[in-house]
Simulated assay, not measured.
Amino acid sequence: MPHYPGRGDFRGRQSHTATYAGPEPFRGMRVVVVGGGNSAAQILAELSTVAVPPVREARDRGALKAEPMFTRLTAAGVAFSDGTTLDCDAVIWCTGFRPALTRLAPLGLRGPGGTIPVDGTRALAEPRLHLLGYGDWTGPASATLIGADRSAKAMVAQVIERLAG
């Protein structure tokens, strides 16, 4: 979860996409979903009704409503830059993930910015290592299902080429 002004003051429940297990724990609660990606839209659609409608149905019902980002959390909810507030019982942070590279730390592969320099999906400093799903640095949108599929196909092609050569 990101550090955000007032996060420690909020008396409600805070969780992250990574720990979201379904809508039932939030039944009857006023929930703010933070994020603009697929996870946020899907969680909001699921929370908007127990029947788990498709995202388009939730949009058509008016359940998907983009708001400007609030400036801080308060004890009772969130506050916006214009001074308005919104009370809520829970905040779900759909704000992305950090690359889980701890297991690779002994290899000393990280470059500037904490990423591992790659050619396609192959680590430059360790050509036997390929990385998938780490965002744009391992292929366009590789952290999404479509992007991961494309990156995986490119990785297979690289591995076959290396084995053949």
Rank of each mutant, 00 (worst) to 15 (best):
T71N: 03
T121A: 11
V52W: 04
P112N: 14
T144P: 00
S48V: 04
R150Y: 14
S142D: 05
G37E: 15
Q42C: 14
F80V: 03
H16L: 03
R162E: 10
T121P: 01
G114Q: 13
S39N: 13
C88H: 09
G147L: 05
R122I: 01
A58D: 06
A21S: 13
V55F: 08
L109H: 07
D136R: 11
G96K: 00
G139F: 00
Y4I: 01
R11G: 10
S151Y: 02
V52S: 15
V118N: 05
I116W: 03
V34F: 06
G135Q: 04
A143D: 12
A123T: 10
F70Q: 00
M69S: 13
A154R: 05
S81K: 02
L107P: 07
P140V: 04
H16M: 07
L129I: 08
S142G: 11
R162C: 00
A164D: 15
R150G: 07
L104V: 09
R11P: 01
A40M: 11
P127V: 11
A100W: 02
G108F: 04
H130Y: 15
R162Q: 11
A100R: 10
V34M: 05
E46V: 04
R98L: 13
V159I: 15
I92F: 08
P53N: 14
R13Q: 10
I92P: 03
G37Y: 09
H3L: 09
L64A: 13
S151A: 15
G114K: 12
L104E: 10
G62H: 08
D87T: 13
Y20W: 08
L104G: 02
A164R: 15
Q158A: 10
R59P: 00
I92K: 02
V32G: 00
S48I: 06
L145D: 03
V78H: 01
D9C: 06
T17M: 01
P112Q: 15
M155F: 07
A63F: 04
Y134A: 09
M1N: 04
Q42M: 14
H16C: 10
T95A: 14
V33E: 09
G108S: 10
P117E: 13
A21W: 03
